[in-house]
Design a protein around this nucleic acid. Structure first.
Lengths: 149, 149
DNA sequence: TTAGCTGCAAATTATTTGCATTCCG
DNA sequence: CGGAATGCAAATAATTTGCAGCTAA
C-alpha cells in the first residue's frame, strides 16, 4: 500500500473515532512510514518529526503515539532498557497473542494463535478446572540475536 | 527443589561471582519464592520484603534485583505499563508441565501435555524465533471452588 | 580486615499533565 | 463556531547514583 493511501486510511480511522488528522500527526506517521524496519523511541521520533514540522513538541509526539496505539495503528514495544519503541502495526489480530521473549536482547514480540483453545478444552475435561485466562510465553532467541549466540 | 536448597544454591552462585548473601538479598529471594506465580513489580517486592526485613531500602531492592538478573537467577519482564516485573527464573520448571492456578483458593496444580510443540514449531517457522523454553499457565477455578463462585 | 553492601536522599530519565492558545472540520 | 489538539513548562513516577557508615566472609 502506498504512503498516500495509508495516510488517507489512517485519516479515515481517526475521523471515525472523532479525531483529527493534524499536520503534527501526519508528520509522526510519515516518520514511522520512513522507518518501517526500525523500532524508534519517542525521542527518535521527536527528532525526526522536527525536520518535517519544526515547532512540534515532545508531548505532542507522545500524545500522537498514544492515540495511534489506541487505534491499533501503532504498536508499542518494550525492550527493558527504560524506553518504549514504536512501529506501525502491520498485524491486526490481537485476540490470542502470546509473548516471544528474547533471552539475549530482551525484546518482547507477539505471536498470534488460537491453538491454545484445544489445550484449554483438554484441561477443562481432564482436570475439571474451569479456565478463564491463560499466560503463554516463549523464551528463546529472536532473529537478530540468533546470529551471534 | 526446596526453598532451603534453592537459597543455598543461589548463595553458591553469588559467591562464585564474589558477591555476598546478605539478609536483604535473602529476603528479596524469599519474597520471589513466595510469589512464583505472579509478576511482581519492584515496589511490590519492596513492600513484601519490608515484612521480612523492615529496614530495607527501595534502592537495595533494585540493586538486588539487578544483580540477580545479571546472574540469571531473576528474570525481568516488561509489560509496557511503565514498570518492570520480576520473577525467579522459570528454567527449572519442566518443559511439558503446566500450571493450573485457582483464582479463588490459590491452589496450584499441574497439567501435562505436549501439544505446545505444535505451536512452538509454528512460532519458529512464522516468526523466525528460536524457542528454547516456554511457560504456560492457566488461570481459573478448581473443581472445589467452581461450586461457589 | 576489607571489599562489597546498605540506607538515605538527591539526581536522572522517560513519560504525563495543566492550561492558555490555536486550529481543524 | 466549538470541541480537539497543541506547545510549553511543570509535575510524575520509576529507576539510578553518590556517599558515609556498616557487615559478611
Amino acid at each position: 500500500m502506498e504512503q498516500k493511501t495509508i495516510l488517507a486510511d489512517i485519516r479515515q480511522q481517526l475521523e471515525t473515532h472523532e479525531h483529527r488528522m493534524t499536520p503534527q500527526r501526519e508528520a509522526v506517521i510519515r516518520v514511522l512510514l520512513q522507518h518501517r524496519q526500525s523500532h524508534l523511541s519517542a525521542e527518535d521520533i521527536y527528532q525526526n518529526t522536527k525536520e518535517l514540522f519544526p515547532e512540534i513538541g515532545l508531548a505532542t509526539v507522545y500524545r500522537s503515539l498514544e492515540l495511534l496505539e489506541k487505534l491499533n495503528i501503532v504498536y508499542k514495544l518494550e525492550y527493558g532498557d527504560g524506553q518504549s519503541r514504536y512501529e506501525l502495526n502491520h498485524q491486526s489480530e490481537e485476540h490470542y497473542h502470546h509473548h516471544l521473549i528474547c533471552l539475549k536482547c530482551g525484546a518482547i514480540s507477539e505471536f498470534n494463535d488460537d491453538l491454545l483453545e484445544t489445550i484449554e478444552n483438554k484441561v477443562a475435561s481432564e482436570s475439571n478446572f474451569k479456565v478463564t485466562d491463560h499466560c503463554l510465553r516463549f523464551f528463546g532467541y529472536c532473529a537478530v540475536c540468533q546470529e551471534d549466540i
